[in-house]
Amino acid sequence: MPDLLVSARGVVHAYGDRRAVSAVDLDVAAGERVAIAGPNGAGKSTLLRMVATLLRPRAGSLTVMGEELPKGARRARMGIGYLAHDPLAYLDLSPRQNLQLYADLYGVPDAADRIEELLDRVDLIARAEDPVRVLSRGMNQRLALARMLLHQPQLLLLDEPHASLDASGTALLDAELGAARADGRGAVIVTHEVERIAQVADRLVVMRAGRVVADEPVAGRGPAEIRARYEQVIA
């Protein structure tokens, strides 16, 4: 595993003429959890999708899992776990069938045991055979969490991960993010829940209008202090 899981230098992405991300630099080291916050349209999700290899940088250089993108995208994808706004699950398949599909795509060994373990961990065993269509939004998010963790990725990329999760789901996610740090994995978390950053991240990156306007550690700061700093930066 490389020491630097993400290294972005002057990364740019545009939708038509509108620049969503402008000359962004970002490093994520192994064992580091970085929270990206900012107002709507700041470019947070676009940056995350570039790191996830779903969008190509229009300019700049981007290295993920030691692989320069886009050339090394396929190798980089082996080490990425991506949690999006949507659960990325087929609604007419069951949670178990969805996880089986992703286990095949990632070549997960002993897939049946791993799926069982994850379904148990996210508390979906009782609904494992129901179509995803009939599950609640929170259960969908738990399934998405299981899907993200299925192949034991070294870099977790999470877009608004706490949305729709109940208290136990939130605790589960926070525990996973804590374990990621202890295991030397890295995480990039896009969030609007600034107060939660002290719990789930080691560093706060604030974006506004496609640019990084602050990049600083959060160690020793409480939720109120982080909120105040965030408001100050985006003002």
């Binding site: 290899t53 999006a84 949507d86 990325l88 699950a89 992703y102 990632y106």
Partner: peptide
Amino acid sequence: QRVLDGLLVSPI
């Protein structure tokens, strides 16, 4: 069902 990203982010 917006699943395409899940396929595209996998090493396939």
